[in-house]
């Protein structure tokens, strides 16, 4: 399949079942909501080293938030429910509780309840107070700028992590431009995040390593500098490869984000240096979700 001069390889992305949650952060203004959201989702690119994968899903207008203030919606994913529960509490405690004027709420109404402010309340040293409003419990914790308001729990659902595609371009500048265009379009899709910096990852990995202690190592088949010495997957003229990784609350959302991203890359076309689009998989044996590129674009 060739679209606008871009070869769509006959392959698929292999994604895994994860646990995910959404939380809503509000603040006096968008600037402070984003300070908290950026800090909360910082160092959360890959579950391998960070415990969770997290990102800002979208901006929230005051009309969309429980307390009528501007905010940000954040998605957090982990491989295990235990890790997710632990990371949500740690991250909210260190980055939202600490950030001036913020409040935090559950962003899902279905799923298993996991602690959000349930244990953070003890920071109030006995001065914390709760209110149950419409069946939901909120904690009010006195802090130095007034009161930190947090919902007692958020919800955890089964989610999908590791959807991906690879953009093969003539050089790095073309790769960045194509990846940025894809991310720009994908940010409008609900229920997904692209957890890497700017949504893009350049250190795609393969399973295994020549070093026993490492479970993953550089994806040499896509490294342009190794083209002449390994069995390369890069076309002859390709000088750069960028990967976009997608985590979503549902398989449908990851599929839609993949489609939107692929369309945006294809729209740039061969003239902008985009040669091919591929995807990462493990032969289909490890992940339960498969996203076939050609099927998604057909």
């Amino acid at each position: 399949m060739i679209k606008n001069g871009v070869l769509i390889e006959d392959t698929f992305a292999e994604a895994f079942g994860m646990r995910g949650t959404r939380i809503l952060i509000t603040a006096e203004n968008l600037k402070w909501a984003y300070h908290a959201a950026h800090a909360l989702t910082g160092f959360a690119t890959s579950v391998i080293g960070c415990g969770v994968e997290a990102g800002i899903e979208r901006r929230l207008d005051p009309s969309e938030t429980p307390d009528g203030r501007p905010g940000a919606s954040v998605l957090i994913f982990s491989a295990s429910s235990k890790e997710l529960i632990s990371q949500v509490e740690k991250r909210v405690g260190q980055t939202v509780l600490t950030c001036p004027t913020t409040a935090v709420f559950a962003g899902l109404t279905e799923g298993d309840a996991i602690p959000l402010g349930k244990n953070l309340r003890y920071f109030g040293d006995g001065w914390q107070a709760s209110k149950v409003i419409d069946g939901k419990r909120y904690w009010r914790i006195p802090v130095m700028d007034g009161e930190f308001l947090c919902q007692e729990t958020t919800r955890m659902v089964r989610a999908v992590g590791g959807g991906n595609f690879l953009i093969l371009t003539g050089n790095t500048s073309q790769g960045l431009a194509a990846a940025e265009a894809a991310i720009e379009a994908m940010r409008h899709v609900r229920d997904v995040i692209m957890p890497f910096p700017g949504g893009v990852v350049r250190s795609g990995s393969k399973v295994g390593s020549r070093y026993k202690t490492l479970s993953a190592s550089t994806n040499d088949a896509y490294c342009p500098t190794l083209r002449s010495v390994v069995q390369s997957a890069l076309p002859n003229e390709a000088g750069s490869c960028m990967e976009i990784v997608i985590d979503g609350l549902t398989e449908a959302a990851v599929r839609e984000a993949t489609r939107v991203g692929l369309e945006a890359v294809c729209a740039r076309g061969r003239d902008a240096g985009v040669m091919a689009i591929s995807a990462g998989n493990y032969g289909g044996k490890l992940g339960q979700f498969h996203f076939h590129l050609r099927e998604i674009l057909s």
Partner: peptide, 13 residues
Amino acid sequence: RQTFGVLTLLFRS
């Protein structure tokens, strides 16, 4: 004189 987010939630409800 202070502002409490919980009041906004309560009043909205």
